[in-house]
Design a protein around this nucleic acid. Sequence first.
DNA 1: GCCAACGTTGGC
DNA 2: GCCAACGTTGGC
Length: 154
Amino acid sequence: MKYWLFKTEPDVFSIDHLKQKGITHWEGVRNYQARNYLRDQVKKGDLVLFYHSSTTPPGVAGIACVCREAYPDFTAQDPKSLYYDPKATPENPIWHMVDVEFVEKFPTYVSLEDLKNSAELGGMLVCRRGMRLSIQPVIEPHFHIVKMMGTRRV
DNA sequence: GCCAACGTTGGC
DNA sequence: GCCAACGTTGGC
């Protein structure tokens, strides 16, 4: 099993949206490196740190679980979609998505500042300046530390 | 709203 | 294949 961090803007899709929906497809990834992770490495059963970006403060809001492996992101072929890509076709969908399922919303939101202040999380990609990748691999110990930080009530 | 960092595009 | 210009991301 592997661990990941998925970024989302909570104005667009937050942990509360996921909690309400239960399962959703992770649409709209339009970056090749992130696409490659989604398409090739994200597997059913993997756990995901659900990260809120472009908000104040940014941080990890909870955990989701991958419940369906990569398949074509059909929003790329929908001219009405925000994520429309005219180059995508049924033969070559270009972009892929997975389905994720709600696991938990943290009782304690773990802000980016908290992550950066934790000595054990020094290597986390999300802590790196200029790190824009929206699908990031997370090593197991980091996942568990973040989960503990989020689960601990303050 | 600013702007640094990054990714993509396209002329050459 | 280089690289300048441009567009986007995302923290602050």
